[in-house]
Write a protein that binds this DNA or RNA. Sequence first.
DNA 1: TCTGGGGTCCTAGGACCC
DNA 2: TCTGGGGTCCTAGGACCC
Length: 428
Amino acid sequence: MTISSIEAIALIDANNFYASCEQSINPHLRNKPVVILSNNDGCIIARSPEARALKIKMGSPYFKEKERLNKLDVAVLSSNYSLYADMSKRLMNLLKNYCEKIEIYSIDEAFVSISRPNNKNLYPWARKIRALTYQNLGITITIGIAENKVRAKVANKLAKNIDYSAGIFDLARNENENSYFKEISVDKIWGIGKQTSNWLKSKGIKNAQELIDMKESEIFKKLGIVGKRLQLELKGYKCLTLEKGNKSKREIQVSRSFGTPITKLEDLTQALAIYAIKASAKMRSQSLQTSAISVFTRTSKYSSQNYQRSAHKKLINATDNTNVILKIVVALSKEIYNPEYKLSKAGVLMQDLTNCNYLQQSIITYKFQEDIKKSENLMRTIDSLNKKYNNKAITWAITKKTKEWTINRNLLSRTSTTDIRKIPTIVI
DNA sequence: TCTGGGGTCCTAGGACCC
DNA sequence: TCTGGGGTCCTAGGACCC
């Protein structure tokens, strides 16, 4: 019989992920200030360390910063999600080889579990994956190690804040952890957002140590079970488990802000139709089907007009069929349209998702089985052609009319790792 | 002029039932 | 005439995350 070793949890994330990806495929950008813009070239969502040093703010709208960025000679790029998704896949595949369990938490972050060796020292392990990631992907990662998820997040923050940490920090290997906890402001703790941190501050709670020492009943009364779990994890108890494997999605959303606000029903319907086609393909790629479809639209958060509507439709049979979904979405779009408002954003949601491998078919529709089969084959063919020809092969006529409202992506980098035609060329 | 997108979890309260 | 209260299920919306 073996004595089971103590399991440690690490939170591994990539530093300035989007900016690092761009710098990794384009040598000219290395060691230069780089910022990445959100969809629609709206605001700044990632900065290289060099850009950070210039005090360029995260989340700041691009149009306000444009001039200054120009003056400072900062490279500005639209976000290139196919590049980031591909780099993410490579990163996660690498991590998988060096841990026992992995929960991919976001595009640039993963919780992993690893048992502590006899001498308890995980620094050599951490240094190894950090070096490998840099060598193979050109990306720097930070590793925070502790006993549970919340503390691993704290450790990761400390690894970033402490100069001599070299990107690795093991909270369980530190004696004077209170002094570290006093350095962590409450609003930097995972799970504490703006509302909660305002409340805590009004109670005189400013840092992680004070939160740990706060009366449990008071936290539970205000923050419920979520707050209670958070406090217990900070104290070192294990409340949150590692979600293993590919947990299937509960909903799929496709939504965008418009480049220019729209007022015509035609445009709204067209936009929603395009999003519905995307969402349907996304569902099929994950073997999911929807039984509840929602659409929504709204005016800009920053305009004087305030209008927001959504409409829903429940389905008797779950479906992933674009034709079926399009019909519903087009009908729903009429319900949320209002000609008096300048609409700035719209989207579709596929909810009540079920995995079609376990799907129940309603008996009423039995006689339509043949039609459904035919339709399924058609969808499969379209998906595979689009995969082969880079999403340009087949689509629905409604998407082809001229669009005045489409999003701006004026500063896109090349899709070097996912499109063979865009591979970097070397001139000798 | 121009301010992202896509998720999850939890809770309060309404509808309905007996 | 007086008209309870507990349980369940569902939904909208809040809060948070990256």
